[in-house]
């Protein structure tokens, strides 16, 4: 929760300046190459490429280490499995692919503001208009969701405080009923506000 808006760090680097589509292209290219092949050296090459990009983006070793540290138990459990069942080549392929994608994600989020990523996704929805997807409503839904996370967090804290103030001992499971009710009520208020502003039919407003 400490950095809900992502790990973006404004810096001057060629990776920061690169257009968003080129970053996604590299990530999809790497993912495809790693997924289609079953040798360990393809993800090893990809990992080296991503680490070069990370250095170009001026990511510090400390930050790369932190990305690794957050998945330490997963990496440990998987490593033990491959060692125990003597599947070293397979393990190298899987773990190198995972590390590559973890660092690639880190580079993407470090060099791109969350708002650009969301805007890019909403733009990417435009070709889907024929299938009944409204990019305007998608953008509205994402913005509403981001705004609602702290609101619901607050209501959870209020519920806990109310229980504590009355000296009642209730498990978290019991607090879910009032939490969901206040969430539905909040959604209804928000929905009425959307209708009042005519935001639910963006087609009518199109110029």
């Amino acid at each position: 929760m400490n950095n809900l808006m992502g790990a973006y760090s404004p810096k001057s680097s060629p990776i920061h300046r690169a257009p968003l589509w080129s970053k996604w292209l590299v990530i999809f290219g790497i993912t495809l190459a790693c997924a289609m092949t079953h040798t360990w050296w393809v993800p090893a090459l990809a990992l080296m490429l991503v680490l070069v990009l990370a250095l170009m983006a001026r990511l510090s070793l400390h930050e790369l280490g932190a990305a690794l540290w957050s998945v330490k138990w997963l990496l440990l459990a998987m490593s033990l499995y491959y060692l125990f069942f003597d599947k070293l080549a397979l393990g190298a392929d899987v773990l190198l692919t995972l590390l590559t994608l973890i660092f690639a994600t880190k580079v993407l989020l470090f060099t791109t503001p969350m708002t650009s990523l969301i805007d890019g996704f909403v733009r990417g929805c435009k070709p889907l208009r024929g299938l009944g997807v409204s990019p305007e409503l998608v953008g509205l839904a994402i913005a509403l969701m981001l705004r609602s996370i702290p609101v619901i967090m607050d209501r959870w804290v209020i519920l806990q405080t109310a229980v504590k103030a009355r000296g009642i001992k209730l498990s978290a499971a019991h607090l879910f009923t009032p939490l969901v009710m206040t969430t539905v009520a909040y959604a209804h208020e928000t929905g009425d506000a959307i209708v009042a502003r005519g935001l639910d039919s963006p087609k009518n407003k199109q110029v």
Binding site: A141, S148, I152, A187, H188, T190, D200
Partner: peptide, 13 residues
């Protein structure tokens, strides 16, 4: 409007 709000708020939930 209500459906969009319910969808977005429950994604946040």
């Amino acid at each position: 409007g209500r459906d969009v709000a319910l969808i977005a708020v429950f994604a946040a939930f």
